[in-house]
Simulated scan of single mutants.
Amino acid sequence: MAVPSSLPAQPSAADVPSGGQPGPSSLKAPNPEAVGQNGAFDIYVVYQRIINNEDISAPLAAILALTELLSQSNAGTMFELVKALNDGAEALKSRVSNPIGLNAGCELFIAFVTLFPHESASFPELKTELIRQGQKYASEALTYRAKIAEFALGFIKDDSVILTHSYSRVVLQALLHAHKSKRISVYVTEARPRGLGIKTYEALTAAGIPCTVVLDSAVAYVMDKVDFVLVGSEAVVESGGLINAVGSNQMAVIARAENKPFYALAESYKFHRLFPLSQYDLPTHNPGILSFPQPPQNAEAAGSSSQSSLKPAVVTSTSRSSGSTAPVAFAPGQRIMTPEQIAKNPDVDYTRPDLISLVFSDVGILTPEGVSQYLVGMFAG
């Protein structure tokens, strides 16, 4: 799908900011929920409000935040409008620790605005139409997971044993959809340090799907028992590679060694014009990740550092995207990583395209090479 000149229209979803065509007066109407501490429009405040909705992922939240920025913009020309959108996108990126998904949504919407046919009678009418199209696209995008689940269903056989990683909305919907007509069993990794695999386990168990939580360090141990691996995505990049919760890459390496298919599920708005060559090319990488601490100056400091690794038996892991929490239990007196040690570890990793069997998306079932071709067409106009 190339960036469309007219984004598809769908009925407005209840959890998406109101659709419909705003009148010209609404373009400058102040939104109390979008006002920052200084009284000015704050796109980050808008983004945080939108992403608190469990159904909306970072790229969609970014698109909806940019449409709201359009409604507040005083731009009188297309040049000024695109500059305002780029400035808004940069403001979002600078305040989010993991901007990868957000970047994908921003670049998609800005490309759409840039390529949109300017057939309106006046510039205010053009802005109104852009806002309406952005809201309709976000509304339609909420149906993409159901499409992907239907595509994936054909690859899930009866009595399949599936391995998944951490928590993914689209993977969860695919598994729940498959459970309606087929018997499946699922292994899910704990996904330290946030423990979001527990969230997946609870959702699958509540639906009646046999599910077992697997230690991240036991992926190779369990791989021989599974039929295939099914993971979600933060982004699928121009090389056809995958950016996802850290641990996905090692899972793909082990799956390849065991000749097990490794499938990725990704909505098309997560396709991202990024071409990393290694883990260290990701936007989330910084010098603090995997850095070595300075050695303690004396024995007393060393003893204090050692004792700081002793933590209570239960910790709570928080999802940065959804704000939800999941308890992760440990044996009494067990040593676990301190917050400082966790902060030195990556949040996401990159999986090379040669390790990925197929990418299931709302635009079809693609090879990693197919994703590259799709991205070229998407931004070619």
Results as ranks from 00 to 15, higher is better:
122 S>F: 08
136 K>C: 11
71 S>G: 14
135 Q>Y: 15
74 N>C: 00
118 H>V: 11
125 E>F: 11
98 N>M: 08
122 S>W: 10
81 L>Y: 03
92 L>H: 10
152 A>Y: 01
121 A>S: 15
132 R>E: 09
95 R>W: 11
102 L>W: 12
145 R>Q: 13
126 L>T: 12
64 L>F: 11
137 Y>L: 13
143 T>F: 12
66 L>S: 04
68 E>R: 08
145 R>A: 15
106 C>R: 02
114 T>N: 13
109 F>D: 05
116 F>C: 13
125 E>V: 04
68 E>N: 10
126 L>G: 01
142 L>G: 09
128 T>I: 13
72 Q>E: 04
143 T>D: 14
81 L>C: 06
116 F>I: 00
121 A>R: 15
86 N>A: 04
119 E>Y: 06
126 L>P: 02
111 A>L: 00
110 I>M: 10
77 T>L: 07
105 G>D: 07
108 L>A: 13
74 N>Q: 09
95 R>F: 09
111 A>W: 01
138 A>M: 03
144 Y>R: 12
90 E>H: 09
138 A>P: 05
96 V>C: 05
68 E>H: 12
89 A>P: 12
112 F>I: 02
67 T>G: 03
130 L>N: 05
108 L>I: 10
103 N>Y: 02
121 A>E: 15
124 P>E: 06
119 E>G: 11
151 F>T: 04
104 A>V: 05
86 N>L: 09
127 K>L: 03
90 E>T: 12
115 L>F: 10
153 L>S: 10
143 T>E: 14
106 C>L: 03
95 R>P: 11
144 Y>N: 14
108 L>F: 11
84 A>Q: 12
126 L>D: 02
138 A>V: 02
132 R>H: 14
91 A>Q: 15
72 Q>N: 06
157 K>N: 10
140 E>F: 09
99 P>W: 09
83 K>R: 15
156 I>W: 06
123 F>M: 05
92 L>D: 10
149 A>F: 06
81 L>M: 08
72 Q>L: 01
76 G>A: 08
137 Y>V: 01
158 D>A: 02
131 I>S: 00
157 K>C: 01
123 F>D: 03
74 N>G: 02
86 N>S: 12
148 I>E: 07
90 E>G: 02
110 I>W: 09
120 S>C: 13
78 M>F: 08
115 L>R: 09
133 Q>A: 11
81 L>A: 01
98 N>D: 13
157 K>P: 00
99 P>Q: 07
109 F>T: 04
110 I>V: 15
103 N>A: 05
139 S>L: 03
148 I>Q: 07
76 G>S: 12
157 K>I: 01
78 M>T: 06
115 L>W: 01
78 M>W: 06
108 L>M: 06
119 E>N: 14
153 L>Y: 00
63 I>T: 10
128 T>R: 14
129 E>Q: 14
93 K>S: 07
80 E>G: 14
106 C>H: 05
108 L>P: 00
92 L>T: 11
155 F>E: 11
154 G>I: 03
140 E>C: 07
140 E>H: 12
153 L>E: 04
142 L>V: 02
94 S>H: 07
142 L>Y: 04
112 F>R: 06
90 E>R: 12
115 L>Y: 07
123 F>L: 03
100 I>E: 04
129 E>T: 14
102 L>D: 08
97 S>L: 13
92 L>N: 11
119 E>P: 01
136 K>V: 01
123 F>V: 02
110 I>Y: 12
68 E>Y: 07
141 A>H: 07
64 L>A: 07
